[in-house]
Simulated scan of single mutants.
Amino acid sequence: MKVAIITGGSSGIGQGAAIEVAKRGVGVILTYSSNRQGALDTVAAIEEEGGTAVALPLDVGRSAGFPAFREAVAGALRDTWRRDTFDHLVNNAGFAQMSMFQDTTEELFDALSRVLLKGPYFLTQTLLPLMEDGGAIVNTSSNSALSSGMTEGFSAYATMKGGLNVLTRYMAKEFSGRGIRVNAVSPGSTRTRLGDDAFERFPEVIPELAAKTALGRVGEPEDIGMVIASLLSEEGRWITAQNIEVSGGYNL
C-alpha cells in the first residue's frame, strides 16, 4: 500500500485531501497542531470508509521539531504499514491573517514566513530521505498569489504563497532525477477554518464571493482534495512543476 503524509489534516483542505487520498487506497499520515479532535475525526472518517490513517502532532512553524517528527513518521510507517518509506507528501498546513500593508507587523510577517514558506521548505528537506523514488509532492498555495485572486489585506500572506510557487518549480527540477513530481494547487475562496473561522464569523461574505465565481459558489474542501488526490495518483504521472488554480473560475 502506498502512503501519503498530509500536513494540516485536522480540518479544511487538509482534511478533504486526506479523505479523498484514502478513498483511492492510499494510507494516510496526517498532522495536526492544536486541533487534535479534528485530526481524530479525520482518522475516523477514513477508517469508516475502510482506509488506514494515523494522526501525528506537528508544528510546521517550528523547524526544530522536524527531526523528531521524522522519527515519529518512521515509527508509524513501521508499525502500521510494515514499511520504512512513504510515497507522497502534501504540504498543506498553514494559517491566514488579513492585514493591510501599512499595518503588517514584523511579527506577523515572520510568523507567516515560518509556517507558509520556511516550514514546507525544511520539512520536505527533512522527510526526503524517507521518500520513495517516483513519488509525488503537492504544495497548497493560494490564488491570492495570482492576479485572479488578489485582495487587499493579504500582501504578506500572498507573498509567502508566491514564494511557495517558485519553490514548487525548483523542487520539481531538483527532485526529477528521483522521478518525484512536484506541483502546487491554488485554491480560491474555500469553506475552511482559515482566518479564525472567517466563513463562520462572517457568513455575509459568502454570497459576494459566490457572485465573483464563474461556477456560482464558494469552494468546498473536497473540491480541492480531489485535485490533490488526482495529482498524487497515476493520473498525474506526466504533470510536474505546475500550479493549478482550483477556484471555480474566480474573477473570470
Rank of each mutant, 00 (worst) to 15 (best):
L77K: 02
E48K: 12
E49R: 14
L30E: 02
N139C: 12
A172Q: 02
D41E: 15
L117N: 01
A184F: 05
R114Q: 15
A45F: 11
G179H: 03
A44S: 15
E106K: 11
S34R: 15
V246K: 00
Q125F: 13
G27W: 08
V90A: 00
F202V: 11
E235D: 13
Q97P: 07
I137G: 04
G135M: 03
I13L: 11
G216P: 09
T7S: 08
G225W: 09
G248F: 08
A136T: 06
L215N: 12
P187W: 00
W81L: 05
V227T: 14
G162M: 08
P120W: 00
F95H: 06
P67G: 02
L56V: 00
L164A: 03
P187F: 00
F175N: 04
V185C: 04
R181T: 04
A17H: 06
M171F: 12
R24N: 07
A156Q: 00
R178K: 13
S148I: 14
D87V: 02
A76M: 07
A145I: 11
G12F: 05
R24W: 08
G219T: 00
Y157P: 03
V166R: 15
T151R: 10
E220T: 08
S186M: 10
V73C: 04
K118T: 13
I224D: 02
S99W: 01
D197A: 12
Y121G: 06
G16Q: 01
R237G: 01
N165V: 10
K212Y: 09
M226A: 15
I224G: 00
E49S: 14
T105S: 15
G8M: 09
S63P: 11
V43N: 03
G75P: 06
M150Q: 12
A210N: 01
K118Q: 14
Y157I: 04
S33E: 14
E71V: 05
T213S: 10
T151Y: 13
S99H: 05
D133K: 12
V21D: 01
G162V: 11
E47C: 10
L112Y: 03
L127F: 04
G219N: 04
Y250V: 01
R82Y: 10
D133L: 10
R62H: 15
